[in-house]
């Protein structure tokens, strides 16, 4: 589909993430929770990669590691060949401008005290891009891209004046306003109803086309992943059990867990095309 299919943008090697419970007096057993276990994964430039798994399988943790909201216990993560584990200061800030995230709950991911303009404009302000006037036109333009048009109407509103779908569009606008190379979308539609979800999928596809962005789409919904993604990875108990093109995963699953996932899928009516 894309010309640069072969070059990988994100490379994870042997990434492990453990949560060690806080040690208290007299507690001898160190029961650690392994969220990710020796994960190897590469995401190609320009693709939408779907990460499918049930709750607690570590899929959100993987996304949070990629945007460096958390640090891996061991292993290495690199963006375009350069390690991101050890970034600090200005280089970390530079990395932040290249990788963005869309969160699950649009009711939680927008600060109720900031207007839409302030929310979307924040990455621009933080990264020191443009002056007030340029930022304003950029925010208005981005609002139009995510389908909140006319942008003027939404510019000065507050999150409580918007519906769930509109809020998630604002969250998407905030993620794309810096024109990052890579976006982690962590179950962006799980809190929304199906018709709005499909609109947002279309929006994500359109954004990928316009900006040539790479998207990691995290979901528990295999059907949604099949609709949206080029390749799908299935994650189970912290291990990636199968990675393949969407067609192969659905049509010819290899791992028993993938088969089980497909079997429990309630319906499979929206095949691609």
């Amino acid at each position: 589909m894309n010309m640069v299919k072969n070059s990988s943008l994100i490379q994870m090697k042997g990434v492990t993430k453990e949560y060690i419970p806080r040690k208290w007096f007299f507690s001898k057993d160190q029961s650690r929770v392994v969220a990710l276990n020796e994960v190897d994964l590469s995401i190609k430039k320009g693709e939408i990669f779907g990460l499918v798994g049930q709750s607690g399988s570590g899929k959100t943790t993987l996304g949070r590691l990629l945007v460096r909201l958390e640090e891996p216990t061991s292993g290495s993560i690199s963006l375009k060949g350069s390690l991101i584990n050890t970034l600090k200061g200005p280089s970390l800030k530079d990395f932040r401008s290249k990788v963005q995230m869309i969160f699950q709950d649009p009711y939680q991911s927008l600060n109720p005290h900031l207007s839409i303009a302030q929310t979307i404009g924040e990455p621009l302000v933080v990264q020191g891009i443009g002056n007030t006037r340029q930022r304003r036109s950029k925010v208005l333009h981005t609002l139009e891209i995510v389908g909140l048009s006319p942008g003027q109407d939404f510019y000065d509103r507050y999150p409580h004046q918007l519906s769930g779908g509109q809020r998630q569009r604002v969250a998407i606008a905030r993620a794309i306003v810096l024109e990052p190379e890579f976006i982690v979308a962590d179950e962006p539609t799980s809190m929304l109803d199906a018709t709005i979800a499909i609109q947002l999928f279309t929006l994500l596809l359109q954004i990928r086309e316009t900006f040539n962005m790479t998207i990691l789409f995290i979901t528990h919904n295999l059907a949604a992943a099949n609709y949206l993604c080029d390749r799908i990875g299935v994650i189970h108990e912290g291990c990636i059990v199968e990675v393949n093109t969407a067609k192969k995963i659905i049509g010819d699953p290899v791992h028993p867990y993938t088969k089980k996932l497909i079997r429990v899928q309630p319906c499979f009516d929206f095949n691609r095309g």
Binding site: V67, R96, M101, D105, Q108, S109, L110, N111, V126, R174
Partner: peptide
């Protein structure tokens, strides 16, 4: 809360997060 994390992902400083959010 996710809106704090979103701001962190955008590269906001700790001071900004504390006083703005």
């Amino acid at each position: 809360r996710p809106f704090i994390e979103a701001s962190k992902v955008a590269g906001a400083s700790h001071l900004r997060i504390i006083f703005r959010h």
